[in-house]
Amino acid sequence: MIIGVPKEIKDNEARVGVTPAGVRALTEAGHKVLVETHAGELSGFTDDDYQNAGAEIVGDRGYVWGKSETVVKVKEPIEPEYAYFREGLVLFTYLHLAPIPDLTNKLLEAKVTGIAYETVRDRQGTLPLLTPMSEVAGRMSVQVGAAYLEKEHGGRGILLGGVPGVPPAHVTIIGGGIVGTNAAKIALGFGAKVTLVDLNLNRLRELDDLYQGRLYTLASNSYNLANATREADLVIGAVLIPGATAPKLVTRTMVSQMKKGSVIVDVAIDQGGCVETAKPTSHSNPSYVVDGVVHYCVTNMPGAVPHTSTLALTNSTFPYLMRIANLGAREALKKDPGLAEGLNTYQGKVTYRGVAESQQREWTPAADLIS
């Protein structure tokens, strides 16, 4: 199989879909890998590294897309890349289609086989390709939030961990999944007062046991959310419904009642965000203010630490890529029901229920098309 690795062109996206180690394994298995020049440079991998591993370095982005049977990326394609779509192309990347109907339309029109990292499941039913970036984003959300609480970024001028005689900042985390758990770990490490809100009482019990009472847990309802956000200096949105649009749990009214100079970091923004006032931002223009509250809603947060993120991501994605390369996409999807969960578009149809429901489209189960 011919596998293409284009350079990411989303604003300040520095990750890359395959490392030189992955190229070596693919070429040793008899596959051809086309890598766009400088694709891995910002992640710490040079063209020479890829070439020495067996890749062909290509200067023409269109050639990489046009000659490859499977294209491996990190972030969802943006408008300049839509022209490269064609029938039969396999696209293996994060897609986050629910809040991007235009991208969905283009994939369907071109009959692209779109396999989304974020909806692939393993035998335990977890999301193995979303987990590593959720870990990175969860940990980053606290250090980003701490920076934006500083006065020069528009914050209240609060040190997250406080000092003796001065109380620490209050951090409210909405969601107790991978993002929320990692955010809690780092916020507690900073010395902050941390409250975590979740619907799942069993999950709250687990976290209470894990942190031995140092983490305040709160059952999720609108009353508790209003109180928790009003008291918070930093709110971290960590809500996920796999593949679907995130629910707007923090309303505009709640935001208006928060402290002036407090900070919201909405990690759920990839799926539309869980804060009503949240809108996607980029690393070059990361924040804005609503009702005196600083909002940080960068859709590719892990792109700021590309070396760590690329290694963490490809550790998880590469076994699936090798399976697709060795078997072909259709056969790999047939043999692995968990990988088939990642199929979002196929033969001009939406094949993931969460995307279809979010965009009010017709849904065709993947199994009906690949069997």
Rank of each mutant, 00 (worst) to 15 (best):
8 E>P: 05
9 I>K: 04
16 V>I: 10
18 V>Q: 10
19 T>L: 07
19 T>C: 09
22 G>R: 06
23 V>E: 13
23 V>H: 13
26 L>T: 03
26 L>H: 07
37 T>G: 08
37 T>H: 02
39 A>K: 08
42 L>V: 04
50 Y>Q: 10
55 A>C: 00
58 V>I: 14
60 D>A: 07
63 Y>T: 15
74 V>F: 03
79 E>I: 14
83 A>D: 08
90 V>L: 08
96 H>W: 02
97 L>N: 02
99 P>M: 02
101 P>R: 03
104 T>I: 01
113 T>C: 00
115 I>T: 01
123 R>F: 13
123 R>K: 12
135 E>K: 09
135 E>P: 03
136 V>H: 04
139 R>K: 12
142 V>L: 00
148 Y>R: 14
149 L>I: 07
151 K>S: 14
152 E>K: 15
163 V>F: 05
175 G>P: 10
182 N>M: 11
188 L>P: 07
188 L>Y: 10
189 G>K: 02
190 F>D: 06
200 N>S: 09
204 L>K: 13
207 L>W: 06
212 Q>I: 13
221 N>I: 05
235 V>D: 12
255 V>A: 01
257 Q>R: 14
260 K>R: 15
261 G>P: 02
263 V>D: 07
270 D>V: 13
278 A>F: 13
283 H>Y: 06
285 N>P: 08
285 N>Y: 07
293 V>Y: 01
296 Y>F: 14
307 H>W: 06
308 T>I: 15
308 T>D: 01
310 T>H: 03
312 A>Y: 14
315 N>V: 06
319 P>F: 01
319 P>M: 08
330 R>E: 15
332 A>P: 13
337 P>R: 02
346 Y>P: 04
350 V>W: 03
352 Y>N: 12
353 R>S: 06
360 Q>M: 12
361 R>V: 01
361 R>W: 04
363 W>R: 08
364 T>K: 07
365 P>C: 09
365 P>L: 08
367 A>Q: 14
369 L>W: 05
370 I>S: 06
